[in-house]
């Protein structure tokens, strides 16, 4: 683990040193490219607060979307007509860019938490829905026959076979949607907000406070990475029998 992390850390450190040196020697103005030390100076409590806002919005959207998508997927698999009727509509909604919908969400839900949470829900919902529908149907026909010979009820088949079988599919979708959740929250903040990393990015860019802009970008990236790794950690703990499901 440590041995594997060493080379990228070394190269990263080298890049930062080169960056610092280039900015100092070339006397690059800070609004164009701030030095790493200048960026580091902008990491403060207020950045942490904005990070917390965005992270919570993303997390809430992610959780709501995951539960909702799982429930809808269950209904789709159970009632085929629902799937046939709603899946094409779901795909149509999915292909609409979230950036295009976000202003509407602000009109409807205001500039508070909910417009960002709903933006995150919208962006997270579909990957989970698609993969869970696929995963719930993924159990081999032979396993279904086994359950039939054992006299299993529909709900036993669902709980003891289909749901565990679906977990690798669920988690590969959760890893995608966890980083997308941060995108949704930030897009929501771009359109109308008074706090959060998206708000900070817009404001610092307008004022050419490029060092702050950089720290906000880094914090946003960190939010996505943190979510992704948390899901990956849970996945390895929970799904020890599989090396990952389909996309």
């Amino acid at each position: 683990m440590i041995a594997r992390a060493a080379p990228p850390l070394a190269f990263g450190a080298l890049a930062i040193v080169v960056w610092q040196a280039a900015v100092m020697i070339g006397k690059v103005p800070e609004y164009l490219l701030p030095s790493p030390t200048a960026i580091l100076a902008t990491f403060d409590l207020s950045l942490l607060k904005q990070f917390g806002v965005t992270f919570l919005e993303a997390l809430a959207g992610f959780l709501i979307a995951s539960v909702l998508a799982f429930a809808v997927a269950t209904l789709f698999v159970r009632f085929h007509l629902l799937e046939e009727g709603l899946f094409p509509i779901a795909i149509a909604v999915k292909t609409t860019p979230i950036v295009a919908i976000a202003p509407l969400l602000v009109i409807w839900l205001g500039t508070g938490w909910w417009s960002k949470i709903v933006a995150a829900v919208l962006i997270c919902f579909f990957p989970v829905l698609v993969n869970v529908v696929k995963g719930l149907k993924a159990a081999d026909v032979e396993y279904l026959e086994l359950f039939k010979t054992l006299g299993a009820s529909r709900s036993q088949e669902f709980r003891k076979l289909r749901v565990p079988y679906c977990l690798p599919y669920l988690f590969s979708a959760l890893k995608i949607s966890s980083s997308l959740a941060v995108v949704g929250a930030i897009v929501g903040e771009f359109v109308g907000a008074t706090k959060g990393l998206g708000y900070l990015i817009i404001i610092s860019s307008a004022h050419l406070e490029t060092a702050t802009l950089f720290s906000a970008i880094i914090a946003a990236a960190f939010a996505g990475i943190a979510m992704f790794y948390a899901i990956g950690f849970a996945e390895r703990r929970l799904i020890f029998w599989s090396s990952g499901g389909g996309e």
């Binding site: 359950f147 006299g151 299993a152 003891k160």
Partner: peptide, 23 residues
Amino acid sequence: FQKPLLLPWRTALDNVLLPVEIE
């Protein structure tokens, strides 16, 4: 069946118990 069709998330003992649970 021709294939074992064990549930990979269950131990050998819990796989053997599956028919009992279902019953």
